[in-house]
Design a binder for these strands. Structure first.
Length: 602
RNA sequence: GCCCCCGUAGCUCAACGGAUAGAGCGACGGACUUCUAAUCCGUAGGUUGCAGGUUCGAGUCCUGCCGGGGGCGCCA
C-alpha cells in the first residue's frame, strides 16, 4: 500500500526525491557563492514526449546581479543550470538530467513512475483526485431564479457554473452546502399577479413549459403596464397594500402561482441533475431584514428619511471617502417596504447562523458587484467583521445573444432553457442514430440526453468568468472539436476496450516495454488531475477542469490511434489495459465534477 | 462625472511573470480488411488594440490613451 500522501500528490515520486534534490541544489548554489533562494519552484517541461520536472536559475542569477555582481542574467542562469546538472549527476528515480537555456530538466525513470500513477488511479477509482479533508465548511449560493418569470439561457450559466464549482470545491476537500435563493416576491411578482387578475383569472399553466407560460405573462404584464402606466401603477399599489394587509385572497393567489414556477424550476433542475441542500426565499427575508434595518438606524449607520424618502446608508460618507466608490445603499422604500439590499443583509447573516460557515460564496452575475460591495461593507460597519471576512461574491459575465442583444425577461427577448434542452437533445439524438444505429431505442434516448446536456454545459464552464458569453444556436449545437461529446467519446472508447478485453486489471505485470510518446503523454495527464482539482478549487475556476478534461481526452485519443491494446503482446497488453482503465477513471471523474455524464456507449 | 470588466490567428477561445504564444471551428491535403472515424496526422494562418514603464525576462504587472460592454438613491 502506498503512504497516505500518495493519495493527494500527482508527483508522488518526485515528492520523494524533492527534498534531496533541493538540498543538493542549495548546496551547489552555496558552493558557487550564489545568494540563497527563498524557495525552489518546480514546473512542467514543455514539448513533452519525455516525462519530468524542471526548475530554472533566473531568480538565482538575478539575485546575484542585485547583490552587485556584474552578470548577464540569462547567461549566468545557463551557467548555473549546467553546473547544477554536473553537480547532481543522475539522482535515483531519474533517467536523464539536462541543462537548457537556464533550465534544469530532470526526466523521470518512466516505467516506475507510470506504474505508480496507474496504480493510484485504479486503486482510488471514483475518489482519484480527491483532496484531503480541509475541515472547512463552505456554502455556494447559485441559480437564484425568479418566480413568475422565464427561465432562459442567461440563467444557465449561473446554474451550471455554480453546480460545477460546488462539485469541485467538495472534491477538493471542503464540506459544501449548496444553496438556492429564489426570488418569489417583490414588485415584479405583484406586476405578474396584477396582469393575471386582469386578463387570465382562472387559467392554469400548461403541463409542459410552465416557466415559458409564466414568462409570457410577465412579459405581457410589462407591456400592459407601459400602455397605461398611471392606472396600472395605482392598481399594483393597491395589490401591494392588500398583500401588506394580509388579504387572504391575494396571499392565496400568490402561493398558488408561485408554486407553478417552483414546480417548473424543479423540472429543470431534475433534467439538469442539480440539487440543493438549502433553499432560501426572498419572501422570508422581509421581516428579519426590517429588524436589521431598525438596528442600523438606531446605530446611526442608516438614515431614515421616511416618509418623504427611503432608508439609506451613505457608505462613502460614513467611510470618509473623498472619491465616491460605495455610493448609497437603499434599504427600505419610503413606504417602509424592504428592498433586496435589506434582504441580502438578513440572508448573509442567516447563512452563518445556520451553518457556521468558513466561507460563504455567492455566484451572481457581475452587474451586481457594486450591490454586494455595498451589502458587505454595510455589514462590516454594523460590526459583523468575522462574517464579512468570509463572504465572497464570485462574479461572472452575462450571456448575450448575437449582435450583443441582451436577454431580457422584461421584454420577452429570451432563448428559453426548455427550448434549448429540447433542441440539444433532438440534435444529439439524430447524431447518435447516425453514428451508432445498432443502439436500441432506450439506450439511444439516454445517450441523446447525456450528450445533448453535456454539449450545452461545457461551453458555459470552459470560459473565463469575466468574459461575456454569446449564445447562438449554431455554436451551442455544434458537437465537434473542443466540446463535451469529444470527451465523452474518449470515455466510450476506453470503456469499449475494457469491455472487450474482459481483463483482470488486478494482475500487475511489470512493464517490460519502452513507453511510447502517446503513453507517456496520457500517463502525464492522468497524473496531473489531483493538482488541477486543487487549482480549480483555489481559483474558483471551472475552466481548469474543462481544459484538463479536453487535454486528457486528446491524449487518450492520440494513444488510441497509436497504441493498439487488445492486439499487443501479453505484457504490453496488460500494461495498456490498466492504463486505459486509469484514463477512464480520470475522464469519468473530471466529467463528474463538471456535472456531465460519462456514457459507456454512444 | 466616478467605478468595474473585456481587447490574442478569419471566427470562438487557451496560455502558475519563464523555454518556440497554443487549441477548436472554418479552409486545404492525407489516414477506416485493424480496440466505435463523434477519431487521428499534416499544411496555411500572429506587430497579443496603441504608447510608455517595472523586470534578467511581459499576452500576463503598473500608467496613459483607443475601442467595446457593464454598474452607479427607493427593480432584482
Amino acid at each position: 500500500m502506498f503512504p497516505q500522501h500518495f493519495a493527494y500528490n500527482p508527483h508522488a515520486m518526485f515528492e520523494q526525491e524533492k527534498a534531496h534534490l533541493e538540498s543538493a541544489l542549495r548546496a551547489f548554489l552555496k558552493e558557487q557563492d550564489v545568494p540563497a533562494l527563498a524557495d525552489i519552484q518546480w514546473s512542467q517541461i514543455p514539448f513533452s514526449g519525455e516525462w519530468g520536472v524542471s526548475t530554472s536559475f533566473f531568480q538565482a542569477a538575478a539575485n546575484e546581479a542585485r547583490a552587485g555582481k556584474k552578470v548577464n542574467v540569462p547567461q549566468r542562469a545557463a551557467e548555473l543550470a549546467e553546473g547544477a546538472a554536473a553537480h547532481l549527476g543522475l539522482p535515483a528515480g531519474f533517467s536523464r538530467v539536462e541543462a537548457v537555456k537556464g533550465y534544469l530538466n530532470l526526466y523521470f525513470a518512466a516505467p516506475d513512475y507510470a506504474a505508480r500513477v496507474i496504480a493510484e488511479a485504479l486503486g482510488q477509482g471514483a475518489d482519484y483526485g480527491q483532496g484531503a479533508d480541509s475541515g472547512q465548511r463552505m456554502m455556494v449560493e447559485f441559480s437564484q431564479p425568479n418566480t413568475h418569470k422565464a427561465f432562459h439561457v442567461g440563467h444557465l450559466r449561473n446554474m451550471i457554473l455554480g453546480a460545477a464549482l460546488a462539485n469541485i470545491l467538495e472534491f477538493a476537500g471542503h464540506e459544501i452546502v449548496r444553496a438556492n435563493y429564489i426570488g418569489d416576491f417583490g414588485k415584479d411578482v405583484l406586476k405578474w399577479m396584477w396582469n393575471y387578475r386582469e386578463r387570465h383569472l382562472g387559467e392554469e399553466p400548461p403541463a409542459e413549459d410552465v416557466t415559458r407560460w409564466m414568462g409570457d405573462l410577465y412579459s405581457e404584464a410589462n407591456k400592459q403596464l407601459d400602455a397605461n402606466p398611471e392606472q396600472a401603477e395605482k392598481e399594483i399599489q393597491a395589490l401591494f397594500a392588500a398583500w401588506e394587509a394580509d388579504d387572504s385572497d391575494v396571499h392565496a393567489l400568490w402561493a398558488k402561482t408561485r408554486q407553478w414556477s417552483l414546480d417548473g424550476f424543479n423540472q429543470i433542475y431534475d433534467v439538469m441533475g442539480i440539487h440543493f441542500d438549502r433553499i432560501y426565499y426572498e419572501s422570508e427575508m422581509e421581516k428579519p431584514s426590517k429588524q436589521i434595518v431598525a438596528k442600523l438606524i438606531e446605530d446611526g449607520i442608516a438614515i431614515d428619511e421616511r416618509p418623504d424618502g427611503p432608508v439609506i446608508v451613505k457608505l462613502d460618507e460614513l467611510l470618509g471617502n473623498e472619491q465616491e466608490h460605495y455610493r448609497v445603499l437603499v434599504l427600505l422604500r419610503s413606504d417602509g417596504s424592504a428592498l433586496y439590499g435589506a434582504w441580502d443583509l438578513a440572508l448573509a447573516l442567516t447563512k452563518f447562523e445556520e451553518y457556521e460557515l468558513d466561507k460563504s460564496i455567492y455566484v451572481v452575475d457581475v452587474r451586481q458587484s457594486l450591490h454586494f460591495e455595498q451589502v458587505f461593507k454595510t455589514l462590516e460597519l454594523a460590526g459583523y467583521k468575522d462574517q464579512v471576512a468570509n463572504v465572497f461574491h464570485l462574479p461572472y459575465e452575462v450571456v448575450n445573444l448575437p449582435g450583443n442583444v441582451v436577454l431580457s425577461s422584461r421584454e420577452g427577448v429570451v432563448v428559453l432553457l426548455e427550448e434549448l434542452i429540447r433542441e440539444a437533445t433532438i440534435r444529439s439524438g439524430e447524431i447518435v442514430a447516425e453514428k451508432n444505429p445498432e443502439l436500441d431505442a432506450d439506450t439511444r434516448a439516454e445517450v441523446a440526453t447525456a450528450v445533448g446536456l453535456a454539449a450545452m454545459k461545457y461551453p458555459m464552464l470552459a470560459r473565463e468568468n469575466t468574459k461575456v458569453a454569446t449564445f447562438d444556436w449554431e455554436a451551442a449545437l455544434d458537437f465537434n472539436g473542443q466540446a463535451a461529446p469529444y470527451i465523452q467519446y474518449a470515455h466510450v472508447r476506453a470503456n469499449s476496450i475494457l469491455r472487450r478485453a474482459e481483463a483482470d486489471l488486478d494482475s500487475v505485470a511489470a512493464p517490460s516495454h519502452e513507453h511510447s510518446e502517446s503513453e507517456i503523454e496520457l500517463i502525464d495527464r492522468i497524473s496531473q488531475f489531483p493538482e488541477i482539482v486543487q487549482r480549480a478549487a483555489t481559483e474558483y475556476k471551472t475552466l481548469h477542469i474543462t481544459n484538463y478534461a479536453f487535454e486528457l481526452a486528446k491524449a487518450f485519443n492520440d494513444f488510441y490511434a497509436n497504441s493498439p491494446v487488445l492486439q499487443a503482446d501479453d505484457a504490453v497488453r496488460n500494461f495498456r489495459l490498466r492504463l486505459v482503465a486509469a484514463a477512464k477513471v480520470a475522464l469519468a471523474n473530471s466529467l463528474r465534477l463538471l456535472g456531465i455524464q460519462a456514457p459507456d456507449v454512444m
